[in-house]
Design a protein around this nucleic acid. Structure first.
Lengths: 195, 195
DNA sequence: TCAGGGTCTGACCGATCGGTCAGGCATGCT
DNA sequence: AGCATGCCTGACCGATCGGTCAGACCCTGA
């Protein structure tokens, strides 16, 4: 049973995506993936240097979009930053529901791996933007709850079409985010602290 | 080095709580816990039938409070249900930040274990109540995002005192939940497409 | 003094993990 | 025909996992 060239590579990737979504990264063994594809574990490791490389290739598109969003965030302040962060993250979360679901709860350990080195910093900046770069606890708490909640939840709405989920989430975020421009005790001089 | 009677039991429990919080349930080995306590792995398994029993004892108080909340929810409808669910869950999340953080992302697998059999149903009811028992996608999405986000996030605010965190979260939830009694755009005939 | 029970341990078990390696097999170029 | 290359595999590796077990140690009460 010979398959077309490089077909196996894609099959492994697809099987890994499914398994990771169901059982998480650590909960899925290379054996599980090989079994679903119908090849040997050695074959999986022939196509991918190791388990981490498999995850990295799976996540690459989502990470690329996250980087783009991070770029678009630079320079934005106040409610403008909140709106860019909200739209950008909701769109990302909806488009990459499955990929995000893979990381469910395994962020801390996974972020230690070199392939995901700066994700933590990007998501920190994202959270900061969604809080309107405010340091009030209410704003920061709301931002974190929303980011975490959307990441966690969007993978469960597989039955809802992209458009509907996106608009519902965006409505929710706009309603839930703590307004920062509006009737605020004017912060005097320093409102952004990073370079 | 002999320690007081039944002291070890509590030490193991405390060490397990710390390790689980940092590395998750599956990410923590009995060896890790034993090392932190300063005893052997066999000692851990002398005090607890198995790893699952350790987790169950750790979670028992939080689960009890969750059950109480579930009882208080029965019969409540509309915005009353939303308010009871919001107050109850926020309070629970704040009080048991650490315990909830343990389950980070491991809910699906952990819920299969007999000790946590009905947690899934309870949290489903809780979500339903927070959505005001509405079946509109917007309400259900908001409820899930908030519950997941709070569960995920509250463990990270270890520096914020209980009272402050509780009020901030409650404010957020009340702001974010989709109002269900209030001024609804009267749906003429077909505004929802699922059954 | 001795028996018995609570506490604790090292040694060990089978299972599973991610990963390595030599070699089989088909194909295509020279 | 001979050789190189790409793809794939079974057998194997060391490490680690949760869990078992026989026995050592200590305290207490008869």
């Amino acid at each position: 049973m010979v398959r077309a060239v490089s077909d196996t590579h894609g099959e492994i990737l697809a099987a890994a995506a499914r398994q990771f979504t169901v059982s998480g990264y650590r909960g899925t063994s290379l054996q599980d993936i090989a079994r679903e594809v119908g090849c040997s574990k050695a074959t999986v490791l022939y196509h991918f240097a190791n388990k981490e490389a498999l995850l990295a290739e799976l996540m690459a598109p989502a990470i690329g979009v996250l980087r783009d969003l991070d770029d678009r965030l630079t320079g934005q302040t106040g409610s403008a930053a909140q709106e860019v962060a909200a739209q950008g993250f909701v769109d990302l979360a909806v488009r990459f529901r499955r990929e995000i679901a893979v990381l469910r709860g395994e962020f801390p350990e996974l972020l230690c791996q070199p392939a995901f080195a700066h994700i933590q910093q990007i998501s920190d900046r994202l959270r900061d933007a969604l809080a309107g770069h405010s340091d009030r606890p209410g704003a920061r708490i709301a931002a974190l709850v929303l980011l975490a909640g959307i990441s966690e939840a969007c993978g469960e709405f597989t039955d809802i079409p992209d458009d509907e989920l996106r608009s519902a989430l965006l409505t929710l975020v706009r309603r839930a985010v703590e307004p920062v421009d509006a009737p605020l005790p004017q912060p005097p001089t320093t409102e952004d602290k990073d370079s």
